Amino acid sequence: MNRPIRDPLSTRLHDTLRPLLAATARVVIAVSGGADSLALLHLLLAGTALDRTRLLVVHFDHALRDDSHLDAHFVGEQAEKLGLACRIGRWESPPSGGNLQERARNARLGFLLECARSFGAEAILTGHHRDDQAETFLERLLRGGGVTGLAGMRAERPLGNGIRLLRPLLGMGRAELRDWLTQHGVAWREDPSNTKERYRRNWLRQRLMPLLNEALPNHDLALRLAESAERLAQADTALEWALADYWPRLDARWNQAAGVISLDCRAFTTLPEAMAHRVLTRCHAALTGCAHPPGARAMAQLTRMTHGKGRRWHMHVNGLRIGRSESRIYWQRFVEAPRKSSQGAGEKEMWEMVEFSVWDPYHERGRFTHPDALLPI
């Protein structure tokens, strides 16, 4: 039996995925019912001898629209027609307060991860494309994003437990994906919330991008912005490489039980500001579990304090006590309101004879007792 010939767009997709996935890998495909995710699904299946038992279609109903169940029904029908297994989840009790879109994304990712683990999948595929990347770049630029933020979405992102998030359509544009679906007679559903300009992403897509394209008619703006994001991603990787090389000089020590990380002050203060911010972000994430760094104002204040002449000081940022004690800078979790006295009796007792481990994310270094353990390091 002759192997079917793939069309050019499908070939591009499979060429992108080939170095990222083993031929026998199990894969979860996130399908919303919109054009982008359906293009991913059909391009993946187009003209291949793919073992469909290794694919699982997953849809998450956020239940934020009265008719959202119709999207779930549509995805289920599509999966059945294609002979694919399908799982559908629903956000039964969306919590109140906070950023609704962020909470919805987190709920969706949680369900995708649960499905991937139970299916034995090593990757989750999403339909993010080049125009999504351009909009992400602009959105983060307007928020004052740095190198990491402006690097945008990565084509590959580890999620833990051997599962990765893959975005194989980042090199393709929205228009060419929809043209492909139309040419192949594939229908999709439009989410009416995508037209509501109160969401910044929609405003960027419907107002700002058309204005920029009109002002620069001979430029493929989405392509240029996506290329800028890619170059910044390369710069971000280079900075991480440089920090890994410098890390041993920081003499980083982490007492997980007490929730304390400390660094050599002199080695830290000799870092360029951008690298120092990376160290701060890493320590903040290690203690709080939050990948988002402290705000710009907190970073600026901390930079002033660390480069000042004071040998003993502390400040409180986002649930952390950050300070200096002689030759070391430390980060410490706290759950009570900050005390007026910076060195109370309870605090001293908490610090006594603490066993530290060298915190090195790149090498295993063993454990030891720090000779200055009586000091709040």
Rank of each mutant, 00 (worst) to 15 (best):
L181T: 14
V31D: 07
E135Q: 15
R18S: 15
T16I: 05
V147H: 03
G127R: 03
R339C: 07
H292D: 13
I5R: 12
G127Q: 00
L232P: 13
L50K: 05
A298P: 10
D360R: 05
P168V: 02
F368W: 08
M172S: 11
G366S: 12
G171Y: 15
A229C: 01
G162W: 15
L20G: 03
L302P: 08
G344T: 13
T237K: 12
L56G: 09
T281D: 09
A285L: 04
H314E: 15
R198C: 01
V354M: 15
E347N: 04
G110F: 08
A123V: 03
A72T: 11
L204A: 09
D67A: 15
D71L: 08
Q206H: 13
D179E: 15
Q301S: 06
E347M: 12
H314K: 12
M350Q: 12
A30T: 08
A300I: 11
L21I: 14
R224G: 03
T148G: 00
G152P: 08
N194M: 04
A25Y: 03
I261F: 11
P94H: 13
P210K: 02
R224P: 03
D372Q: 05
A267K: 06
H62G: 10
L100N: 00
M153V: 02
G146N: 13
L45N: 03
S228D: 02
W247Q: 14
D251R: 14
H59K: 02
D264K: 12
E355C: 10
I124K: 07
W188M: 01
R266W: 11
N255V: 00
R367Q: 11
A104K: 11
L138H: 06
E139L: 13
A79V: 02
L216H: 11
H316G: 03
L212A: 11
L21M: 13
W188N: 01
L70A: 09
E336N: 05
M305S: 07
H129V: 06
R278V: 04
T306E: 02
L109S: 04
R333H: 09
R189G: 03
R231V: 10
L43I: 05
R333T: 14
R189E: 05
D264T: 07
D191G: 05
G173Y: 00
E114F: 05
G289L: 08
F119C: 06
L232I: 11
P217W: 06
L40N: 07
S325K: 04
L287H: 05
L70C: 04
Q78K: 07
C115Q: 15
S341G: 04
L64T: 08
R54V: 03
P371Y: 06
V186C: 10
